[in-house]
Nucleic acid binder design. Structure first.
Lengths: 366, 366
DNA sequence: AATATACAGGAAAACGATTTCCGTGTCAAT
DNA sequence: ATTGACACGGAAATCGTTTTCCTGTATATT
């Protein structure tokens, strides 16, 4: 069923190397005539190269290893999609390993990928050690994307957290709020620090006073947001707006407001962060700053391919920016009901719908 | 840096084939003595086999191709996780291709996977043609998981939709409801038909009359659920409970109820389907039937590995069952506030928390 | 003692491509 | 006419394993 290069060569009346050269656009000179003939024969006979054999000889597999924290983690799939799109366009494949934050699995993963002779590695929200430790384990180029900590910046795709926080804070300020509280993540997270920084920068630039009691810390979960919201509501001079460092805490805070008999956004406006899917489902839908995960994935793949081609081992990383998605919770738009279709936000299912394909209809007749 | 088999052989004073036999647990007889010696040398020298070379010789890559509709589609990541877990335990890798429901991409994908000599293919919510068409394109074994249509059952992992719908309907009936409406998906979807069937079976078995006007059709989206909910509310004899064929429509129906000035669950109880993440975030949190995606992934991987080992090309598929998750929207539990931690529902981030690892803390000192 | 059998291990082939190296033939320059 | 450069294509090596085939030795069987 599968035809090999030697058969193409024989059919075209040339040697195997010549056939190889024709089919791989080798720089080795050859007459346009024979090249054409070989290509024609290959096409006709449906030649498909055995990529394993090619890889053995060339030591390139056109495959990238992706070590991800856990594919179930909310931002990983869009990051992967971004990576895969860029890789596919360049003729690369990928293979994914979940590390579950286990250093042992991470090590094994790198080792496995080495044995499979992949061309490079992307660490997606994974690996909390230094580049140097990784360099000990593999000589392939690698890149980090959305790694949450350490200040190491080389070969890292990261989010401009300060910008995002300013976007959210500035939006609330622009709506006339002067008493804007901030529900942060845990103190020691890098993202927490950066977003707090952005919040304060934006206030300062707008000459809005900063009140330390307006900054609460949550645990990234809805429960923490709820508690933080209650604390803020209990203040003698309570805020008129709350920016939460993620959507989950924003939802929690919103529920605390509702349970206190107040309304969002009329009494207290809310802005979240991340643009998780549920942000558009809850009522009111949460205004938020997107985490541009697909873009980060794309950038990471581009950077890695660049490293592979350039043979350089270090490169400064890339910083991407989210954007503000205005929904009901901030009070900037009217409160009429809006349902954002799932298919509108994501490409998924769009093809089906666009073509009106409902394959089951065939079944109707049976 | 990398040591090859021939060096191990030389160091152990044996020939290359003998070394190979020792390291691969070959059935070829050999003295325990030399085997031990070879293994010791290999361990000491840190031998790692070149899997590309092995694959070229054995024509097995220990890699499975996964053709998925789109990794962004909500159930795909958990299915992939299930697949990956089983594959990893058996020493297999996977490589993912997004088909975006494009038949051309699907064909190319199969072709690419062929060239890479993968050992089998899992189609995840993808491919709407017959097994026969695929068999024309590849001689590797393949399996379908959560394929939404056609009645072809071989090598398919699917959900017992009837069971799930009965679970939801029965739960509402068990709470004393006799007027249970059903918001279905589009008529021509297989899942719609099956779930409707389950709904009717459960009613029949409990001697609850079936009212055709209690069955509405939505478009799987929140907007459709909202509209269907309004219709049901407008009935002269309106239902006291609604079962919706997915969570998105359940949320929409719930909002229609709220906008009509009624309460969930006190006035109208709601049960959804799928256990999407937002179901636990909205208020009241939605009681729902899980779509056991991870389990489906695991089963599909097991089935495929079985096919690979047995060399059989056809096997009857597997049917898995979801389970009921009781939350607030059905009225079965008290209405006190419950926040389900994200980390409680998923494994993600659990490791970090369990170990109290906050790697940024190192940064504190800098 | 002769023969069959099983065991251990090595030589060489094989997997299917790419790359290196070399030998022609052609052409232009001397 | 000789030389050198270059274009073109083939022979052979190569990538690192596994598998087939074979040989020699030790043991068992008659």
């Amino acid at each position: 069923m599968t035809v090999k290069l030697s058969e193409i060569a024989k059919a075209a009346g040339v040697s195997v190397p010549t056939a190889s050269r024709a089919l791989t656009n080798s720089s080795h000179p050859m007459s346009a005539d024979t090249r054409e003939r070989i290509l024609a024969v290959a096409r006709e006979m449906g030649y498909q190269p055995n990529l394993i054999a090619r890889s053995l000889r060339t030591d390139r597999t056109n495959t990238i290893g992706l070590i991800v924290e856990n594919i179930l983690s909310p931002f990983i799939p869009p990051i992967l999609r971004g990576i895969q799109d860029v890789l596919r366009a360049e003729g690369y494949f990928s293979t994914i390993i979940n590390s579950d934050w286990d250093p042992v699995i991470e090590s094994e993963a790198i080792n496995d990928l080495n044995n499979r002779k992949i061309d490079g590695i992307i660490f997606v929200e994974s690996w909390h050690r230094s580049s140097k430790e990784i360099r000990d384990k593999t000589d392939k180029p690698f890149v980090f994307v959305h790694r949450l900590f350490h200040n190491q910046l080389e070969n890292t795709i990261r989010v401009d957290e300060i910008y995002g926080a300013r976007l959210a804070t500035g939006h609330l300020a622009g709506l006339g709020h002067c008493k804007i509280a901030y529900i942060n993540g845990p103190k020691d997270w890098d993202a927490s620090k950066k977003r707090l920084q952005g919040y304060r920068q934006e206030l300062a630039e707008r000459n809005i006073p900063f009140y330390p009691e307006f900054v609460q810390h949550g645990d990234w979960e809805a429960g923490g947001g709820y508690a933080a919201g209650q604390t803020l509501l209990g203040l003698p001079d309570r805020p008129t707006a709350i920016f939460a460092a993620n959507d989950l805490m924003a939802a929690g805070a919103m529920y605390a407001i509702q349970d206190a008999g107040l309304r969002t956004p009329q009494d207290i406006a809310i802005v979240g962060y991340d643009d998780r899917y549920f942000a558009r489902i809850v009522r009111p839908a949460i205004t938020t700053v997107t985490l541009p995960a697909e873009e980060m994935g794309q950038e990471s793949a581009r950077l890695l391919l660049h490293l592979i081609q350039q043979q350089k081992t270090t490169e400064i990383g890339v910083e991407v920016r989210g954007k503000l998605i205005v929904r009901q919770s901030c009070g900037a738009v009217d409160q009429k009901l809006v349902f954002e279709d799932e298919q509108g936000s994501r490409a998924w299912r769009s093809k089906r719908s666009r073509e009106g394909v409902f394959p089951d209809s065939e079944e109707e007749t049976t």
